[in-house]
Protein backbone atom coordinates (compact mmCIF):
# COMPACT_ATOMS: atom_id res chain seq x y z
CA UNK A 1 0.00 0.00 0.00
CA UNK A 2 1.52 3.29 -1.09
CA UNK A 3 0.78 6.32 1.02
CA UNK A 4 0.35 9.55 -0.90
CA UNK A 5 1.73 12.82 0.33
CA UNK A 6 2.63 16.25 -0.91
CA UNK A 7 6.20 17.41 -1.25
CA UNK A 8 6.16 20.66 0.64
CA UNK A 9 9.42 22.52 -0.03
CA UNK A 10 10.49 25.50 2.03
CA UNK A 11 13.60 27.38 0.90
CA UNK A 12 15.87 29.33 3.25
CA UNK A 13 18.68 31.51 1.91
CA UNK A 14 21.09 30.44 4.61
CA UNK A 15 20.92 27.99 7.52
CA UNK A 16 23.20 26.38 10.08
CA UNK A 17 22.17 23.01 8.78
CA UNK A 18 18.97 21.79 7.12
CA UNK A 19 18.95 18.68 9.32
CA UNK A 20 19.18 20.74 12.53
CA UNK A 21 16.26 22.95 11.50
CA UNK A 22 14.19 19.95 10.44
CA UNK A 23 14.95 18.27 13.75
CA UNK A 24 13.87 21.38 15.69
CA UNK A 25 10.65 21.70 13.69
CA UNK A 26 9.78 18.03 14.16
CA UNK A 27 10.52 18.27 17.89
CA UNK A 28 8.13 21.20 18.16
CA UNK A 29 5.36 19.68 16.06
CA UNK A 30 5.14 15.89 16.04
CA UNK A 31 2.12 16.01 13.73
CA UNK A 32 4.23 17.33 10.85
CA UNK A 33 3.58 15.47 7.56
CA UNK A 34 6.06 13.43 5.62
CA UNK A 35 7.18 15.02 2.40
CA UNK A 36 8.20 18.22 4.16
CA UNK A 37 11.46 19.45 2.62
CA UNK A 38 13.83 22.13 3.87
CA UNK A 39 16.16 23.49 1.20
CA UNK A 40 18.89 26.06 1.61
CA UNK A 41 21.29 27.94 -0.62
CA UNK A 42 24.06 27.94 1.94
CA UNK A 43 24.91 26.00 5.08
CA UNK A 44 27.07 27.65 7.71
CA UNK A 45 27.69 24.43 9.60
CA UNK A 46 26.38 21.62 7.46
CA UNK A 47 26.89 18.35 9.21
CA UNK A 48 28.62 15.27 7.98
CA UNK A 49 29.06 12.60 10.58
CA UNK A 50 29.21 13.89 14.14
CA UNK A 51 31.80 16.66 14.27
CA UNK A 52 32.53 16.85 10.52
CA UNK A 53 31.46 19.80 8.40
CA UNK A 54 29.95 19.66 4.91
CA UNK A 55 31.32 22.49 2.82
CA UNK A 56 29.09 24.32 0.41
CA UNK A 57 29.15 27.73 -1.24
CA UNK A 58 26.04 29.92 -1.63
CA UNK A 59 23.36 28.64 -4.05
CA UNK A 60 25.85 26.45 -5.86
CA UNK A 61 24.75 23.11 -4.56
CA UNK A 62 21.66 21.12 -3.73
CA UNK A 63 21.30 21.11 0.04
CA UNK A 64 18.16 19.78 1.61
CA UNK A 65 16.59 17.69 4.31
CA UNK A 66 13.59 15.52 3.56
CA UNK A 67 11.17 14.23 6.17
CA UNK A 68 9.91 10.66 5.79
CA UNK A 69 7.84 8.35 7.98
CA UNK A 70 8.95 4.98 6.69
CA UNK A 71 6.98 2.71 9.08
CA UNK A 72 9.79 0.27 9.67
CA UNK A 73 11.44 -1.05 12.81
CA UNK A 74 14.91 0.17 13.70
CA UNK A 75 16.53 -3.18 12.81
CA UNK A 76 15.54 -2.44 9.18
CA UNK A 77 16.79 1.16 9.24
CA UNK A 78 19.62 0.67 6.74
CA UNK A 79 17.11 0.31 3.90
CA UNK A 80 16.44 4.06 4.22
CA UNK A 81 20.08 4.75 3.48
CA UNK A 82 19.87 2.38 0.52
CA UNK A 83 16.88 4.02 -1.16
CA UNK A 84 18.37 7.49 -0.77
CA UNK A 85 21.67 6.34 -2.32
CA UNK A 86 19.82 4.67 -5.19
CA UNK A 87 17.76 7.80 -5.87
CA UNK A 88 20.92 9.93 -6.16
CA UNK A 89 22.69 7.42 -8.40
CA UNK A 90 19.62 7.24 -10.63
CA UNK A 91 19.46 11.03 -10.83
CA UNK A 92 23.13 11.29 -11.83
CA UNK A 93 22.68 8.59 -14.46
CA UNK A 94 19.88 10.70 -15.94
CA UNK A 95 22.36 13.56 -16.27
CA UNK A 96 24.67 11.28 -18.26
CA UNK A 97 27.12 10.63 -15.46
CA UNK A 98 28.35 7.06 -15.66
CA UNK A 99 30.53 5.26 -13.18
CA UNK A 100 28.45 6.41 -10.23
CA UNK A 101 28.96 4.20 -7.21
CA UNK A 102 27.86 4.04 -3.59
CA UNK A 103 30.78 4.27 -1.22
CA UNK A 104 29.42 2.42 1.79
CA UNK A 105 27.76 3.43 3.92
CA UNK A 106 26.37 6.59 2.34
CA UNK A 107 28.61 8.61 0.07
CA UNK A 108 28.08 8.87 -3.64
CA UNK A 109 31.20 8.66 -5.77
CA UNK A 110 31.91 9.27 -9.43
CA UNK A 111 34.95 7.11 -10.08
CA UNK A 112 37.22 8.08 -7.14
CA UNK A 113 35.61 11.41 -6.28
CA UNK A 114 32.81 12.30 -3.90
CA UNK A 115 29.85 14.14 -5.43
CA UNK A 116 27.22 13.69 -2.73
CA UNK A 117 26.89 12.92 0.94
CA UNK A 118 23.95 11.82 3.02
CA UNK A 119 23.22 12.25 6.70
CA UNK A 120 20.21 10.44 8.11
CA UNK A 121 18.76 11.07 11.54
CA UNK A 122 15.97 8.85 12.80
CA UNK A 123 13.67 9.63 15.66
CA UNK A 124 12.68 6.38 17.31
CA UNK A 125 9.64 5.50 19.35
CA UNK A 126 10.51 2.25 21.07
CA UNK A 127 11.75 0.10 18.21
CA UNK A 128 9.83 1.92 15.51
CA UNK A 129 11.30 4.61 13.29
CA UNK A 130 8.84 7.44 13.82
CA UNK A 131 10.59 10.01 11.63
CA UNK A 132 13.52 9.83 9.29
CA UNK A 133 15.29 13.09 8.49
CA UNK A 134 17.23 12.59 5.27
CA UNK A 135 19.91 15.23 4.74
CA UNK A 136 21.45 15.40 1.28
CA UNK A 137 24.32 17.50 -0.05
CA UNK A 138 24.91 17.19 -3.79
CA UNK A 139 27.70 19.21 -5.39
CA UNK A 140 26.27 20.97 -8.46
CA UNK A 141 28.02 24.11 -9.68
CA UNK A 142 30.92 24.49 -7.30
CA UNK A 143 34.32 24.78 -9.04
CA UNK A 144 36.62 25.32 -6.11
CA UNK A 145 36.67 23.42 -2.86
CA UNK A 146 38.68 25.17 -0.17
CA UNK A 147 38.68 22.71 2.66
CA UNK A 148 40.61 19.50 2.92
CA UNK A 149 37.53 17.35 2.28
CA UNK A 150 38.71 14.28 0.40
CA UNK A 151 38.35 14.24 -3.40
CA UNK A 152 35.32 16.45 -4.02
CA UNK A 153 33.76 16.80 -7.48
CA UNK A 154 30.68 18.62 -8.75
CA UNK A 155 28.27 18.00 -11.61
CA UNK A 156 29.62 21.10 -13.33
CA UNK A 157 33.21 19.88 -13.11
CA UNK A 158 32.07 16.67 -14.79
CA UNK A 159 29.90 18.03 -17.60
CA UNK A 160 30.90 21.71 -17.77
CA UNK A 161 27.33 22.94 -17.40
CA UNK A 162 25.51 24.78 -14.64
CA UNK A 163 22.38 23.45 -13.02
CA UNK A 164 19.50 25.03 -11.13
CA UNK A 165 19.31 23.52 -7.61
CA UNK A 166 15.49 23.88 -7.57
CA UNK A 167 15.15 21.75 -10.70
CA UNK A 168 17.56 19.15 -9.41
CA UNK A 169 15.59 18.95 -6.17
CA UNK A 170 12.38 18.12 -8.04
CA UNK A 171 14.14 15.41 -10.02
CA UNK A 172 15.65 14.07 -6.81
CA UNK A 173 12.26 13.95 -5.08
CA UNK A 174 10.80 12.13 -8.08
CA UNK A 175 13.59 9.54 -7.92
CA UNK A 176 13.31 9.20 -4.16
CA UNK A 177 9.56 8.67 -4.43
CA UNK A 178 10.15 5.85 -6.89
CA UNK A 179 12.42 3.97 -4.46
CA UNK A 180 10.36 4.93 -1.42
CA UNK A 181 7.35 3.34 -3.12
CA UNK A 182 9.40 0.18 -3.65
CA UNK A 183 10.09 0.15 0.08
CA UNK A 184 6.42 0.64 0.91
CA UNK A 185 5.50 -2.18 -1.48
CA UNK A 186 8.12 -4.34 0.32
CA UNK A 187 10.21 -4.81 -2.82
CA UNK A 188 13.22 -5.14 -0.56
CA UNK A 189 15.17 -7.68 -2.60
CA UNK A 190 15.02 -5.36 -5.62
CA UNK A 191 16.47 -2.54 -3.50
CA UNK A 192 19.12 -4.87 -2.03
CA UNK A 193 20.20 -6.10 -5.47
CA UNK A 194 20.56 -2.66 -6.97
CA UNK A 195 22.48 -1.39 -3.96
CA UNK A 196 24.82 -4.38 -4.01
CA UNK A 197 25.69 -3.97 -7.68
CA UNK A 198 26.38 -0.27 -7.24
CA UNK A 199 28.80 -0.68 -4.32
CA UNK A 200 32.05 1.20 -4.80
CA UNK A 201 34.99 -1.17 -5.31
CA UNK A 202 32.76 -4.23 -5.22
CA UNK A 203 34.66 -7.35 -6.33
CA UNK A 204 37.90 -5.39 -6.62
CA UNK A 205 40.81 -6.37 -4.46
CA UNK A 206 41.42 -3.25 -2.36
CA UNK A 207 43.26 -2.06 0.68
CA UNK A 208 41.53 -1.27 4.00
CA UNK A 209 42.50 -0.58 7.56
CA UNK A 210 40.67 -2.07 10.53
CA UNK A 211 39.77 -0.53 13.88
CA UNK A 212 43.34 -1.09 15.16
CA UNK A 213 44.80 0.65 12.06
CA UNK A 214 46.09 -2.64 10.72
CA UNK A 215 45.90 -2.73 6.94
CA UNK A 216 44.66 -5.69 4.97
CA UNK A 217 43.47 -6.60 1.51
CA UNK A 218 40.00 -7.78 0.64
CA UNK A 219 37.11 -7.59 -1.77
CA UNK A 220 33.81 -5.93 -0.98
CA UNK A 221 31.03 -8.43 -1.71
CA UNK A 222 27.79 -7.03 -0.26
CA UNK A 223 26.24 -5.50 2.86
CA UNK A 224 24.42 -7.47 5.54
CA UNK A 225 20.73 -6.78 6.26
CA UNK A 226 21.73 -4.55 9.17
CA UNK A 227 24.07 -2.62 6.87
CA UNK A 228 27.49 -4.04 7.77
CA UNK A 229 30.05 -4.20 4.98
CA UNK A 230 30.92 -7.75 3.97
CA UNK A 231 34.49 -8.17 2.78
CA UNK A 232 36.09 -11.32 1.47
CA UNK A 233 39.51 -11.46 3.13
CA UNK A 234 42.22 -14.10 3.13
CA UNK A 235 40.49 -15.48 6.24
CA UNK A 236 37.02 -15.67 4.67
CA UNK A 237 34.13 -13.20 4.66
CA UNK A 238 34.18 -10.68 7.51
CA UNK A 239 31.56 -8.11 8.49
CA UNK A 240 32.40 -4.57 9.47
CA UNK A 241 30.34 -1.84 11.07
CA UNK A 242 30.94 1.81 10.23
CA UNK A 243 33.99 2.99 12.25
CA UNK A 244 35.42 -0.56 12.31
CA UNK A 245 36.93 -0.11 8.87
CA UNK A 246 38.46 2.53 6.63
CA UNK A 247 39.04 2.51 2.91
CA UNK A 248 42.59 3.22 1.80
CA UNK A 249 41.93 5.57 -1.11
Amino acid sequence: MIRRFTWDIVYHESLDSTNSLMYDEVSKDKSISEGYVIQTGYQTSGRGQIGNVWESKADQNLLCSILLKPEITVDHQFVISKIVCLAIVDLLNDYDIDDVRIKWPNDIYVRDKKIAGILIQNILQGKKVKFSIVGIGLNLNQDIFDSNAPNPISLKLLVNKKYNPDHLLLVLLDKLLEFYNKLQLKKISEIDHLYKFLLYRRNQRSSFTDINDISFYGMIKDVSPSGQLQILTDDGVKKFAFREIKYVL
Binding site: I50, Q77, S81, I120, A241, F242
Partner: peptide
Protein backbone atom coordinates in the same frame (compact mmCIF):
# COMPACT_ATOMS: atom_id res chain seq x y z
CA UNK B 1 22.82 5.48 18.94
CA UNK B 2 24.60 5.54 15.58
CA UNK B 3 24.55 2.46 13.38
CA UNK B 4 26.08 2.41 9.91
CA UNK B 5 26.06 6.20 9.93
CA UNK B 6 22.34 6.44 10.61
CA UNK B 7 21.87 8.51 13.74
CA UNK B 8 19.03 7.28 15.91
CA UNK B 9 17.65 9.69 18.47
CA UNK B 10 16.43 7.60 21.38
CA UNK B 11 13.36 9.00 23.12
Amino acid sequence: VEAMKLFNEIE
